[in-house]
């Protein structure tokens, strides 16, 4: 595994500067750790604050909340306001400052080329439809964790494959999209949805074998895996906060 980065990312530098701004302007009311004080609410662990976009937070900080006791800080200037919001993200544990150790340009080429990730996954509007959109997957993830996910492609409750054998012996493989006691619905690789009545087919097996590639440890070198992970981390860092709803595809 690659060593620690020697340089701070731009985001980390910004947050670093923001720490000072926070200590001298905000901590008095919101508490030194942002968890709230007598005069102002918690900014660090409250969902409604965390889920706000950077733009919205910057606007609150600049304009204040007149009549509610939150003073305006526009006079600090854009840079300081940006930095204090970046520091808020650190306090919230929502930092995008994950170290990037590989070459993300090379990773991008792999994703859409040799590694064939885009056959199944989509990133920023390009790619396939059988597996999840990875545009913001790298948000807050370590390269090693991403590499692990790629190499194992472990089955999970949200990634179930299904194989239906009809009474005439036809076999259809796909990703499970819906089921109940009476029917299963799968998405097959040609982009069509199929619903089968359980009582009218020969067999239904749960299997992720065709859905989940298992051979990336042998197909890709450690450098290539790191490049891919770096690509996913930088892609997520470029996405704005509003593009980061919990999960794109939900069942």
């Amino acid at each position: 595994m690659a060593g620690l980065p020697s340089q701070l990312t731009a985001q980390e530098k910004l947050a670093d500067a923001g720490q000072q701004v926070f200590a001298s302007n905000c901590a008095g009311c919101h508490g030194a750790d942002g968890h709230g004080g007598e005069r102002a609410p918690n900014l660090a662990t409250v969902r409604s604050v965390i889920s706000k976009s950077d733009d919205d937070l910057e606007s609150i900080v600049k304009k204040g909340l007149p009549g509610l006791g939150m003073p305006p800080f526009a006079y600090l200037g854009d840079d300081k306001v940006k930095s204090v919001v970046a520091y808020l993200r650190v306090l919230q544990g929502k930092t995008t400052a994950t170290p990037v150790t590989g070459n993300s340009t090379a990773g991008r080429a792999l994703f859409f080329g040799k590694a064939q990730c885009s056959n199944c996954h989509m990133v920023r509007g390009s790619g396939g439809f059988m597996a999840s959109d990875l545009s913001v997957y790298g948000d807050g993830q370590a390269s090693s964790a991403i590499q692990h996910a790629v190499v194992t492609h472990a089955p999970s409750p949200t990634s179930r494959g299904v194989k239906v054998t009809t009474k005439s012996g036809e076999k259809i493989l796909g990703a499970l999209r819906a089921e109940d006691n009476f029917a299963v619905t799968l998405l097959s690789p040609d982009g069509s949805f199929h619903t089968y009545d359980r009582a009218k087919v020969a067999a239904i097996q749960y299997t992720s074998e065709s859905l989940l590639p298992k051979d990336y440890a042998s197909r890709l070198s450690p450098t290539e895996l790191d490049d891919l992970a770096s690509f996913l981390i930088t892609t997520a860092a470029q996405a704005s906060a509003t593009e980061k709803p919990a999960k794109r595809r939900q069942r």
């Binding site: 919205d56 819906a178 619903t195 709803p245 069942r251």
Partner: peptide, 19 residues
């Protein structure tokens, strides 16, 4: 949705906008 069963095939979630 599957138009026969009403089951959700996918759900694109996006938070409502503030302000």
């Amino acid at each position: 949705l599957d138009a026969v069963t009403g089951k959700t095939l996918w759900h694109h979630a996006r938070p409502i906008s503030d302000g």
